[in-house]
């Protein structure tokens, strides 16, 4: 994107659009990410929210934390509702009942369950129809709202209440994390990115870019959940940083099909640094950790190939 002004500490607005006093757990990185997104988008935005932690902790009467229009419908249809809101605003603008110059950003937001499991159909439909909206998935890697059940975004080897590691099954979650970022990119939409609240300016830049892009944009945000990941609340931000440094969750964006790394490191940490502080991985033995390392290396390599290919094309 040309003439794009990035965020910095001094340029960050002081105004808050997500009020404090909500009911999130201590150290919830999801609410930190949501707050940064709200700051970036300002007051001209509309939210369609799926069922989940975010809905419960920010909206219970009489403690709504939202200072912008907000709608919660059901678990599976945040993207579909946002499609309707966007189409509705467009009709009103065409009929002259809504100021045309006023740019309203329509945002659909959901957790990993509401995106990769039950909400995938609605998401795919919205991306395919090409609504001018931003879809943000706050991925805490399980159904935390109902008490830590696995989702298809739960990583290999994590223990949850419905993928419990024990005597009969020493591993926990057997399947690899669903690569929803690639699924979104496969819809050939103009903008797809991964983000983390541990890298706040990177996150805000991406949200700004997504909102400015005409057509659908998808942002996948990894938000550490101290309660569900079984770790101390003060580690939420640092574990998000380690996830990036250990290649578990690389930060990159896909603009019109071109891959670009937004945060790079010369030296990477081993994944064990990421797994160790989290209670959900504590049952893993060395062989299982080695397998995770191997998987992480492989998918990172594959990503680098795509980045290189995109660079060559651009050059």
């Amino acid at each position: 994107m040309e003439n794009f002004n990035v965020f910095a500490a001094k340029l960050t607005p002081q105004q808050e659009f997500l009020a404090g006093g909500h009911r999130a757990c201590q150290g919830c990185a999801e609410l930190l990410a949501v707050r940064l997104v709200a700051k970036t988008l300002g007051h001209d935005y509309v939210i369609a929210n799926a069922t989940g932690c975010l809905e419960i902790v920010t909206s219970s009467f009489p403690h709504s934390a939202w200072k912008v229009p907000w709608i919660h419908v059901a678990f599976e249809n945040a993207a579909a509702v946002a499609s309707g809101v966007e189409a509705g605003i467009r009709v009103l603008q065409r009929k002259g009942r809504y100021p045309v110059q006023r740019k309203v950003t329509v945002v659909a937001q959901a957790g990993d369950g509401g995106t990769v499991d039950i909400g995938l159909q609605a998401l795919s439909g919205a991306l395919e129809r090409g609504h001018d909206m931003v879809y943000i998935c706050y991925d805490n890697e399980a159904y935390m709202n109902t008490g830590i059940q696995r989702s298809s975004s739960t990583p290999y080897g994590a223990t949850t209440t419905t993928s419990p590691a024990g005597k009969a099954d020493p591993l926990g979650q057997h399947t690899m994390k669903k690569n929803i970022v690639e699924i979104a990119a496969a819809h050939n939409i103009p903008y797809v990115a991964t983000a983390s609240p541990s890298y706040p300016f990177d996150l805000m830049d991406k949200v700004k870019k997504a909102a400015a892009t005409p057509g659908p944009a998808y942002i996948h945000c990894l938000v550490p959940c101290p309660t569900g990941w079984r770790m101390a609340p003060n580690l939420a931000v640092s574990i998000g940083r380690i996830a990036v440094e250990s290649k578990v969750f690389p930060l990159y964006e896909i603009e019109n099909g071109d891959y670009r790394m937004t945060v790079t490191h010369k030296k990477h940490r081993p994944v064990v640094d990421y797994l160790k502080p989290q209670g959900r991985f504590r049952h893993l033995n060395e062989a299982q950790i080695a397998r995770i390392q191997e998987q992480v290396d492989k998918s990172y390599e594959r990503l680098q190939k795509k980045v290189k290919m995109s660079q060559n094309e651009l050059d």
């Binding site: 369950g113 499991d117 039950i118 159904y143 109902t146 008490g147 059940q149 209440t161 419905t162 993928s163 419990p164 024990g166």
Partner: peptide, 16 residues
């Protein structure tokens, strides 16, 4: 099954 309050315990126990 699929987690949903207030029936989730049934899934959790049977998962185990």
């Amino acid at each position: 099954g699929y987690p949903i309050t207030p029936s989730t315990e049934i899934a959790e126990i049977l998962a185990d």
